[in-house]
Design a protein around this nucleic acid. Structure first.
Lengths: 237, 237
DNA sequence: ACAACTTCTCTACAATGTAGACTTTACCCG
DNA sequence: CGGGTAAAGTCTACATTGTAGAGAAGTTGT
């Protein structure tokens, strides 16, 4: 068990490259992606990095901050660039991007949704506020009055998060099963109490999340630009 | 410290009334409402009920099931009765009811949102599926084809949950402060990076959640009945 | 080469969920 | 009644968690 420290070890820093916040956080993210949130303990993460767990406190003051860091890291994957023709197209693209992001990191979604509930807006990690700022900017640049931009943002982001949660919640229990009721575990529900839900099993089992999102966004955007000020005209409150 | 057991104790079951699942769960809910989710530990709950913590396992197999129970209990407060004139009015009322419910139990909202993510649809506590079933029923009765009812439900509930999360996230840090930037803790944000957000501080500080929700619901509902089959006509997929 | 500082490691502790054995209570049937 | 069966409640014990605090090892500037 004794690692027999050789003085020439220093010359070849094989496993002993210096730790950085990014290294720690991305290891944490990898762990969460692979084994879920509960697997992310200080000890386990330390082990994953071949370091003493206590060392991690140099890069995140406590576990909560570690979780915030993971949220931030994930949201950094979301690129909000003013590239599309109009604001509607941009919001639509961002929506799909965020959806894919969520599907790529489903175990992180609870964090994205939950952490802000216990952290007042101004005290959140900057990385998690950046999308908000950028979308506001996008809308204002497109001609919305700032207050209207905020309204649009709220409706848009609200729906978007809601959709993502919905989609992740409609999980397939046993994909190998070919009976829809069984695939979803719905067979357990008392038929008298849940006739509609049970009858919809086949529809539930073939959920096209992207299409559903797209349609919802369409409805919302057209509704919004009707009720609020479209990019050219003047605001309305 | 010895409670001097008197044989006539049975006659006056002062503190020793029998525990029930409802008693346990409502004590748990009270605790969560008052002190947050973290305060809900087995030991603490036992203490609150004047019982040994271990006894609680008779009413909830483990902590996760306890949390599910609390979710269920809260959702039971939501009454979905076919009382309003049309489906749109009903959905609107339910939305406001759920919003108020969330404001009454803000600490439970993370549960409502998070627990279903780790429990496949069919295995959830029945109480949490009942709203889904009832809304489906409401829509189908109103003339929607079942598959369309599901689409409407998804868009509606998605937006609704998103709005609630949004609203709870826009929290006032220090209500006594009269400078909007300070009240929201936004003064911490680097002005160069977050000009829009900072400029919107006054608007953020005066958030009328009910109005915003109502408007969003209007947009969504009118959009939905245009894109899908309105109550009379035939479905469209 | 020494000193100041950062980074890493070890040991230790309080709090948590929960298993398992035991004791007490409630209820039922002869 | 009275004793026996099951339910409800309690106690003790343990593994796992986050993290404080002291110290060792390594790095850097002079």
């Amino acid at each position: 068990m004794s690692p027999q420290k050789d003085p020439t070890d220093k010359a070849l820093p094989r496993k002993r490259e210096r730790l950085t916040r990014e290294l720690v956080l991305s290891a944490a993210l990898r762990l969460v992606d692979a084994e879920g949130l509960d697997a992310l303990t200080m000890r386990r993460l330390g082990q994953e990095l071949g370091r003493d767990p206590m060392g991690l406190y140099r890069y995140a003051a406590n576990r909560a901050e570690l979780l915030d860091g993971v949220s931030e890291l994930v949201l950094d994957e979301l690129a909000i660039t003013p590239d599309a023709p109009d604001w509607q197209a941009q919001l639509r693209r961002i929506a799909h991007d965020l959806r894919l992001l969520a599907l790529r990191h489903p175990n992180v979604v609870p964090l994205l949704v939950t952490r802000p509930l216990s952290t007042p807006l101004g005290l959140r990690p900057l990385g998690t506020l950046r999308p908000l700022e950028q979308i506001l900017s996008l809308l204002i640049d497109a001609g919305f009055a700032p207050a209207d931009a905020l309204h649009v943002y709220r409706a848009y982001y609200g729906y978007l998060y809601g959709h993502i949660l919905n989609e992740l919640q409609e999980l397939i229990v046993d994909p190998d099963e070919n009976e829809a009721l069984l695939r979803l575990g719905l067979h357990r529900l008392p038929p008298k109490e849940f006739p509609r839900l049970r009858a919809l099993a086949p529809v539930l089992a073939t959920y096209d999340g992207a299409a559903e999102l797209d349609q919802g966004i369409s409805i919302l955007l057209s509704g919004l630009s009707a009720h609020l000020s479209p990019p050219g005209s003047q605001p309305l409150g």
